[in-house]
C-alpha cells in the first residue's frame, strides 16, 4: 500500500469575529532584550534613592532627564545629583491611557522643574487630588524600595502638604 501523508489535526481553534469579511483574532507578543546602555547609571541611581542628571562638560547645560551627549553643543556630559525637590512645571490627570496603563488610571503626570536645571523630568505625582495639583507646586521625590529598574522607580509627592504637618 502507498504511504499516505497527512498533517495531524489539533483542537486549537481560532477566535472568529465575523465571516464576511472574515475577521479573526491574531495573537502576537514579544520580550525584548533591552539595554539602557549609556543611560544605565540613571536607573542604578534610582535604586539608591538618587536622581542623576547630566551636566555638559562643554557648555554647562544641565539636563534633568539624562543624555550622554549635549544637544546644545555635542560635548560629552557628566553625571550630577539632582536635588530631590522641585516644582510642578505642568501636569495632567489621565483617566484613560495606553492599554498597558489602563489599570493604573487615574494617574497624574507632572513635568518636574528643578532649580538651576535647564530641562525637566517626567514623572508621576501621588497623593494629590487632581483638582489640587497646581503649576509651581513644591514636590519631592520618593523611590520604590524594591527597584524595578524602570523610570517609575521614582515618583513625586507634595512637599507642601508635608511642610504644613
Amino acid at each position: 500500500m502507498p504511504e499516505e501523508f497527512k498533517l495531524p489535526e489539533t483542537e486549537e481553534g481560532t477566535v472568529l469575529f465575523n465571516i464576511d469579511p472574515i475577521i479573526i483574532k491574531d495573537h502576537y507578543e514579544i520580550d525584548y532584550i533591552h539595554s539602557y546602555a549609556q543611560d544605565s547609571p540613571f536607573f542604578a541611581g534610582l535604586s539608591k534613592g538618587k536622581l542623576l542628571g547630566s551636566r555638559c562638560t562643554g557648555c554647562g547645560y544641565r539636563y534633568a532627564t539624562p543624555r550622554c551627549h549635549c544637544m546644545q553643543c555635542g560635548k560629552k556630559t557628566e553625571w550630577f545629583e539632582l536635588p530631590l525637590e522641585g516644582t510642578v512645571h505642568t501636569y495632567t490627570t489621565c483617566y484613560f491611557g495606553g492599554e498597558a496603563f489602563i489599570k493604573e488610571t487615574p494617574f497624574t503626570l507632572v513635568l518636574v522643574e528643578f532649580p538651576g536645571v535647564d530641562t525637566f523630568l517626567l514623572s508621576r505625582l501621588i497623593g494629590v487630588k487632581p483638582e489640587e495639583v497646581k503649576i509651581g507646586m513644591q514636590v519631592k521625590a520618593r523611590f520604590l524600595r524594591l527597584s524595578k529598574f524602570r523610570a517609575t522607580d521614582v515618583y513625586f509627592v507634595s512637599a507642601e502638604e508635608t511642610c504644613r504637618k
Binding site: 495632567t92 489621565c94 495606553g98 496603563f101 514623572s123 523610570a151
Partner: peptide
Amino acid sequence: NEFIAHASDTNFDYPVGGFYTGYYAMM
C-alpha cells in the same frame, strides 16, 4: 494608544504612563 505612545522615549517617557493625550494635556 499604547502603540502610538511608543513614539515617545521608551526609557524615560513611555513607562511613566505613555499616553499622547496626556502629553498634549500637559502642553
